[in-house]
Structure formats: C-alpha cells, structure tokens
Design a protein around this nucleic acid. Structure first.
Lengths: 299, 299
DNA sequence: TCAGCGTCATAGGGTTATCCTATGGTTCGC
DNA sequence: GCGAACCATAGGATAACCCTATGACGCTGA
C-alpha cells in the first residue's frame, strides 16, 4: 500500500478511465494499470470492474474510496506544509553559470526549476567562468558552474563533466586533420570573450600549451560573443575554437568544418562553491538540478 | 513523499530515537535513517535536530506531524478495510436480493449471517430483479438473487428454485378456475413495481405469452409495493398476480381468492454473479447461506 | 462488415527506492 | 579514558516504479 497506488486509485475512481487518470497524474496508462493491479493482487480482490463500458467500482473499491481520499489529502497537506516551510517557497535563488550554459541546458534548467518551485525567483549570473569564480570566491554568489582551470583559492571545486574543444574553420583543408599548437599560432584566430581575454579558462589551457612549445598565441579579431565569432569564421576571415556542444547546437552556421586538437583539449565543467559554506535550500536545489542534468548528458 | 517515509517520521517523532522506531516498524536503523534523510533532502530542510541527547523536532517537523499522522491513519484504515474484505473478520458484505425476498427468508438469512459473522456488516441492495441484475453485471454488486428471465449478458446464472405465480382476486367467481392469458387481458389489473414496469421478469413472462396469443396486457392501476396492490385488490377494484410465497405470508389480506394459471406460470429464482469473477469470502458465504435456505424451502 | 479509434493488459527493460549487513564516528555516563 | 547507545555511511541485493511498444477487445461509422 503506497501513496502512489492510492493516488492512482483515487484518480481512476474519479475520472472513470485509466487513461484519463494517467494524463492527470502525468504518467502513462500502463503505469496506472500496474499500480492498480498491484494493489488488487496484494489484497486478492478487484477494485474496479473492467466492463466493456466504463470502469465501475466494486464493493471493495467503494469501501476503499473514503480512506484513499483521506490519505491522499493528508499527504498533499503534508507536502504543502513542508513546501511552504522550506525557503523554496519564496526568496531568490542566485546561481552562477558559465557562458556556454546556453549550449548545454540553461533554458531547460530554468524551466524545470521554475516549474517545481514557482515561488522562487531566479537570478542567473555569469558572462564567463572567470567572473563566476571570482563572485563565488568573494561570497557574492553561493555557487556556480565554471570551466576549469580557474583560480581555486577559497573554493570547493567538483568536476562534473568534460566536453572536447574543437577547431573551427570555413576551410576544409585547415580542418582536414587534427591541429597542433603551432598550427594555432600560425592561424588567424577569431576569439570571443574579449572582456576576459586570456584569463578565460579555455584560453589559459591553450596559452600554457603554447608556452611549453615556445610559441605565442594571439587573436586576430576579438569579439564578445561566440555567435559573432562564428559568423566571422563562416565569412572566411579566420578560424576559432569552441566546445563540441556549440558545434552541435542549432545556431551553428552551415558550411563550417571542425577538427580536434592533435593533443585533445577539453573543457572541464565543475561546480564551485565557497569553502565550508552551507548553501541555502533554493540554491542547493538548483545546484542539484544543474549537476543532475549535466551528468545525464555525459557520454 | 511516500507512506513509508511518513510512517518512519511519525514513529521517530513518537519514540524519540531512530533505533526504537526501527524496532517498532520491524526495520533496521539505517533504513529509518535513510527514509528520514530522503524526506529531508526532498524539501531541503531538517525534520529532526540531531542533538547529542535525543532527537528534537524542528519547526518544520512540528508542522509536518499532524499531516503525517492523518495520512498514516488513513492508510491504516484503507488497509484494514481491504484486509477485512478478504476475510470474514470485518468489513461489509454486499449482496443483491429480489424484491420478494421478504416473503421468502430475508430476515432469517440476515439473522443467521449476523449470528455467525458478527464482525461483518451487511448491505442488502435491491428493489427489483432488474436493478440487481444490472448492478451485478456492471460490477457494483458481487452477486445477488433475481427472478428469471433477466438479460443475462455477462452473468453467470444458477437457477435455484421456482415458485408458482397465482392470480389474486376479491371475487370468488373470477378465481374459481385457472385463468388464461385472455382472461388476464380482459381483467382490471392492479400491478406493482411501477418503477420497472414491464421490464420486471414476471411481467415479461406474461407479456411474451400475451404476444403469442395476439393480445395485450395493461395495468389499470400501477403502484410500487405489493402490499399496496393487495389492499386495492381487497377493496375490489381489480385483480393482481403474486407468487405463492406472498399468499401464504402473514400480511396477506383476508378475503382474497387465488387461482393458478391455466398454463402454470412460475417465478424462477436464480443466483447471479459476474462471469468469471471470484467472490469475496463474505459474499460467498452469504450467497452460500441464501442458496441453502432457498433449497430447504423447495417443495 | 470492416477499418479506425479508444480502451486496458502485457512484455521487456532501465532507473531508482528500499532494505539489508557491516562499519565508522560521536556523545554520554561511569 | 572506555564501553554503551546512538546516528551516519558504504556497498549490494531486491523489488518497485515507470517507460515504450505492442496486443486484445469492444465500439462506431462508412
């Protein structure tokens, strides 16, 4: 005897069909069927008479009805009580996200959170991982998602997933084989995140590699937005680098070629929060959602 | 939010420790721990303050308590209701009986059943065979006794006994010899069961005979109760038909004459239940008693 | 009469909850 | 301190749960 079983029973008794109850409970008809069946098997009696017509309560079902109603109502009350007591019933959840979040799951995350906690307002901060990391470190944000590497002083960092960084060009020849750092140094690079320049984590990784090779990277053109950079690349003025998630998104221009790095390069996405801090319920919840949705996307 | 979580919460709140609650609920302490933890995580708030001493309810836990109690109680009631229906130690036995049951054995049946199973409450449904047959067919009733013929779609029908239908009149001359259908067509008929009219089984038998003879039957006066009809007949306004059991009952008015039909007419009493259905113990028992008592009365 | 529709039942599979045992960590009383 | 009592955590087996896909059946309209 579980609450789900009682809920299903009640809804079926109210609406008269399994299918309608399934829609109402946001489940599928076979699930309803199974819940009812299990309850019937548990007690060895039928709750509904499955006639050709519509479902009719058996005497046993009739006897169960008032108790089911009471239990489900009480559980709904319990849920309401807890929900209103938790701070998820108000206030503002503040969370930092890396710039690329659009390409991963941002809108879905916000929709899901808002659906579950409609009373909580959301403030999503973050033009770039650098900014997010600094804000979290300073305590302005409780938590956020960033791309590594970052300056991790005063932060708890939990890597969650990684996404490969690709080289993007309008010329098939320049993207015909994995590129090396020296290829990169020789290329016309169209880079974005002008505001943060070489403090950007992905760029930092590249700069470190270049340093080891004894060469220098510099941007031919720097803009703020990835989309702008990609448009320029599509025009043939130069090449750029983006993570794979960007290349598979809808907005990715036609006619661009991609290739990997000879020594594969990855953006590692991590959750950061202030060392030793306790997250507010709302923030914890959105962090939990974000982590789960990211992990679901792991290859 | 599951019932098990609420049960665990309630028991912990009552007993003050996880371990004690585990013993009481026949589970292990880690299981209780996990159930509580999951509920706390779901809502992002603590339900118990884990002090060094003993557990104390947080305000949130305090708020949850009444709802938890109500939900758990209701579920226990549901369980009891269903469990008792699959045994003879409680619950309600529902059974359908034809209208005339009073004249056969109704009170005796109920007394006997109640004496043997005092914990089972009885709900006897049935103003007329038509109604009982439809309710059983739809699954609202598990079984019942009816007079044939009925529409037997979806029903298992077991004839048990028959009782002759007699013609009743205040005039000795009109009841001096067996009556024919044409006699009937010519008579002032005082009929009962107005609500069901010619769907009533006995009336259907008569109507079919009349059809074969090419004549039509119609009621001069229609009332609901047999007793009313008999009073009117005793006043001489017309004649009626009843089964023999009625004529031998205590309430049968003085001064009325009865005769048989020229072509004898019988009410056949049958047990009906839904095709392929399994009766609950209580219903099976009352059906068994009813059948036995009927058969004992067989001529 | 037969195809189309809506209904519930069943099969198969992936995910999660639940529950266990075993063990670690903390707090209290002696 | 040290044992006792208690809660938390880890790891693993089982069952519940929920899904998609498909089958069976009755109803309905051409």
């Amino acid at each position: 005897m579980t609450l789900n079983q009682l809920r299903a029973f009640l809804m079926v008794a109210t609406l008269g069909t399994f299918s309608a109850a399934a829609v109402e409970l946001q489940m599928t008809q076979p699930s309803i069927s199974e819940l009812i069946k299990r309850m019937e098997e548990t007690y060895g009696l039928k709750l509904f008479a499955r006639g050709s017509r519509r479902l009719v309560l058996t005497p046993a079902g009739e006897g169960l009805l008032p108790y089911a109603r009471q239990a489900v109502d009480a559980a709904a009350g319990a849920d309401r009580a807890l929900r209103s007591l938790s701070s998820l019933s108000g206030g503002v959840a503040t969370f930092g996200l890396l710039r690329n979040a659009n390409y991963y799951f941002l809108s879905e995350l916000l929709e899901k959170f808002n659906e579950r906690y409609p009373l909580v307002r959301l403030r999503i901060i973050g033009l770039n991982s650098v900014e997010v990391a600094e804000a979290v470190s300073a305590g302005e944000l409780e938590a956020g998602l960033v791309v590594l590497p970052i300056d991790s002083a005063g932060l708890d960092v939990t890597p969650l997933m990684r996404d490969e960084v690709l080289y993007v060009s309008a010329s098939s020849s320049r993207a015909s084989a994995p590129v090396t750092i020296s290829d990169l140094a020789a290329a016309n690079l169209i880079l974005y995140d002008a505001h943060y320049g070489w403090r950007d984590p992905t760029r930092r990784q590249l700069a470190e590699r270049a340093q080891l090779e004894g060469c220098t990277l510099s941007a031919q053109i720097e803009v703020e937005h990835v989309e702008t950079a990609l448009s320029i690349v599509a025009g043939g003025a130069g090449d750029t680098i983006v993570s794979r998630a960007v290349t598979t998104s809808k907005g990715f221009p036609e006619g661009l070629f991609t290739t990997t790095f000879a020594d594969p390069l990855y953006d590692t996405i991590a959750m950061v929060q202030r060392t030793g801090s306790v997250l507010s319920p709302a923030t914890r919840e959105i962090a939990r959602l974000a982590r789960r949705m990211l992990l679901e996307r792991m290859p």
